[in-house]
Every structure is written in C-alpha cells, then in structure tokens.
Amino acid sequence: MWSTPFALLPGGRVVPIDVPLMNIASKSSFVLNRRHLLGIEGLSRDEISGLLDLAEEFVELNRQIEKKRASLRGRTQINLFFEASTRTQSSFELAGKRLGADVMNMAVSQSAMRKGETLIDTAITLNAMHPDILVVRHHASGAVELLASKLDCSVINAGDGAHEHPTQALLDALTIRRNRNRIEGLLVAICGDITHSRVARSNILLLNAMGARVRVVAPSTLLPVGIERLGVEVARDMREGLADADIVMMLRLQRERMSGSYVPSVSEYFHYYGLDEKKLAYAKPGALVMHPGPMNRGVEIDSIVADGAQSLIREQVEMGVAVRMAVLEALSRNLPNA
C-alpha cells in the first residue's frame, strides 16, 4: 500500500485521502482489443488478468467519497434488459455513471418487443440512436450475439439464456483472487443447477483458463449431458463433490424446477444439495462460500452459511460494480475516437 496523506476536516476528524482521489488518470493502461464482450470463451489469460487488475483500481475508487471518473464522458450506454434483473442492471448503471457515461435503462417489458417487434428490428432502431455501449440481457442463449452482429456499437453480454454471463465470472474471479491471492491451482466446486446456469458456464471457462480445477456438483437431472467434456470433474453428491474444495460456489435453483420436474421438492433438494454447515465441513477448512444471487435461503443455501464468516456473497456484489467499470473502461478505450 502507498503511504496515506491526511486531510483535516472541520471538527478535527481525520480522513485518509487515498491515491485514486488525487490521481485521476488510471494506472492501468489495459485495453481490451475487442469490440464486444460476449462471453468468457475466447478471452486469453492475459485479457482476464488485465481486466481483473483494472477492476482492482475501481474497487479502491468505489470506496472513496468521490467515485467519479470522466473516461466515458460523452458516451451513451444503454442497458437493454429483456429479463428482469436487479443487481446486474443496477450494477451496470452505477458503473457507467461513475465513469461519466449517459446511461439509459430500457424497460423492455413496456417496449416494442412486447408489441411483436423482432429482436433485429429492435437492434436497428437502437442503432439509429448512436449508442456507444449496449449492455444486454436476454432469456435466449445466443440472442446477445445476434444483436451484436447487427449493431455498430460495443455490446456487453449481461447474461444470455443458459449460455454466458461473463461479468459475473469476472467478478467471481476478482473476489477469489482478492481472498486467496491466486486462482491457479484452487479447487472450485460449482454446485446446483448447472443445466440452466449461464453463471456456471462462464465460470467453468474462466476458471479453467486461469488454471483452477473445477468440479460441478448436482443431481444428474441438473447436469447437462456431456458436461464432463467442458473440462470439469463431475460429482453427484456433496460429500464427494466438496472434498478438498477451496471455494464452494452455489447456484440458484429456479422455483419452477423444484417441484418434481428436475428435483422432487425443496426439502429433498435442501437435504441432499443445500449448503449447510455440515456439508460445508466436507470442503477444505476455511473454504470460501460464494453465490451469484439472488439466494433462495433454505433451498440451496442455509442462512447460517450465507451470512457466516466463510461467506463472500456480499463482497461479490461490491466486486460487481468494479468489474463492470473495468469492462466498460477497457472496451471504451478501444472505441473509435477513444
């Protein structure tokens, strides 16, 4: 850490003034040499590390009183969410605003899509408004890529179907790296509904790229056929699945999948796959617990564990804003006229 100069406030209170406040220019000059961030797939280890390093700076910035940068000043960012989201959307909104962009949230539920406009027509319409960055979430896998192919601006995938959610994987990686100082060599157990999870897919890709060992743990009904070909170990019970794990990453189970279609009931799911203190004890002592949120307490995770000392769940949310700022910043440096 750098030495901290102090400023005296009225009343004699001393607050530290950290470097980012005084040093407006970013230290990292990392540029993501891509127009879009559609997924973790295809990102190199250096690109991932570059994004994480840049995000570290924003973590510091976000803890200051003055959180504003001007690097996206003049830019227009549209958050286009075809699927309801609280934390991802607000996190992208904050990230854009802190970097100085004009941010607009498109409420798709009231928009033309509901009147029958196709996804492509929506893209053409948006394109005419000259946004610089479009942040898109869509319920169909591949929809974000489809949009990106029709737009002139940068597109960031904020989650497409069960395909990818790259910023979630990046914020998870940042959280892990800050707590364990590394990713390489760690054993990460991803537990729960792997079949329907974009978070799982992006994390598998990222963690493998960074040299971690990944294990997925779920009942067979929630494991896609062929998952072992994605470079993961597969376990079907928590004792075996959590053995030696450094990180236990829980996934959300959607309500409609709990009552007999994929698993018989909430109580059976929690009994065999819900993370409680007893099951957490199968992992390495001091193993860290993560969850992308929103949590179903008492379904996939017990409150005592979710709120316990090993939980990083709140830190993940904090890292979310920083990582999204890093992604916006790194992409914007590659924009025309940047």
């Binding site: 009552s259 007999g260 279609s261 018989p264 009931s265 109580s267 059976e268 009994h271 065999y272």
Partner: peptide, 15 residues
C-alpha cells in the same frame, strides 16, 4: 415414483 401416482412430478426419491 410420481406424486399422487399422477405421472407428472417425481417424488422425493432420496428421502
């Protein structure tokens, strides 16, 4: 095997 023998939703096989 299914709740209420209705052939729709599986029962709590583990429990």
């Amino acid at each position: 095997l299914t709740k209420g023998l209705e052939g729709k939703e599986m029962t709590e096989i583990g429990l």
